[in-house]
Design a protein around this nucleic acid. Structure first.
Lengths: 100, 100
DNA sequence: AAAGTACTTTCCTTATTGGAAAGCGAAACG
DNA sequence: CGTTTCGCTTTCCAATAAGGAAAGTACTTT
């Protein structure tokens, strides 16, 4: 049916959609946008990484550790396919979910 | 975040989208379109009914029992709100999920 | 040395889902 | 009549999944 279970979970759908818009996003930024706790974001980010959909990069800003999340090419593909599947489902109701 | 957990589950999303397009649909028709077993459809239909989103009507065709599913007004509202929430999320990625 | 930052992991409990199989009431069949 | 069949419904049974709380890690700052 085309929906990707890794992406379909509400929190992960939000994370992926957010990342699809940006090059890279900081852990804290994503956490605040999606409104989840550190632990919840950490777990979902790991799940997305394990699926090969997100790359997690660790670095520093000054001397403070920081984590960035980024959609991988596979993640972007999977996201596009997932949205296409959603569109197909929603289209049956007469609504649309497609660009233009 | 606006996503309705009752509607978000893949099988139920498909059921609701299907019902949104039609006045009423037969149990067997929905089961075949969504490609689930009798027991799975029965459970999800009950869940949707318990939420007040679907009306289940029982009757006969000739002498054979038949069950029809229909979106209730509340179900339609909830579905539209759910799709709006999906649109909002997907819109962040630059894609659209909206009619026209 | 103690506290704080930025997460990560563990622990635990609750919820959800699906498949398989048994159940059920009415009708059709031999 | 007794047995199948039809059209679902319900029960039983794991398998996951998900979140909150709290502890842990590796540094850095005070």
């Amino acid at each position: 049916m085309g929906l990707d279970p890794v992406i379909h979970a509400p929190v992960r759908l939000q994370i992926v959609a957010l990342l699809a818009a940006a090059e890279e996003a900081e852990f804290a930024f994503v956490r605040d946008q999606v409104e989840v706790s550190d632990s919840v974001l950490s777990k979902h980010a790991s799940a997305l990484e394990a699926a090969g959909y997100v790359d997690i990069r660790k670095g520093y800003v000054g001397k403070r550790p920081r984590t960035w999340l980024k959609l991988s090419a596979r993640g972007r593909q999977a996201y596009l396919a997932h949205v296409a599947a959603l569109q197909a489902i929603v289209a049956r109701s007469g609504l649309r979910l497609t660009p233009e």
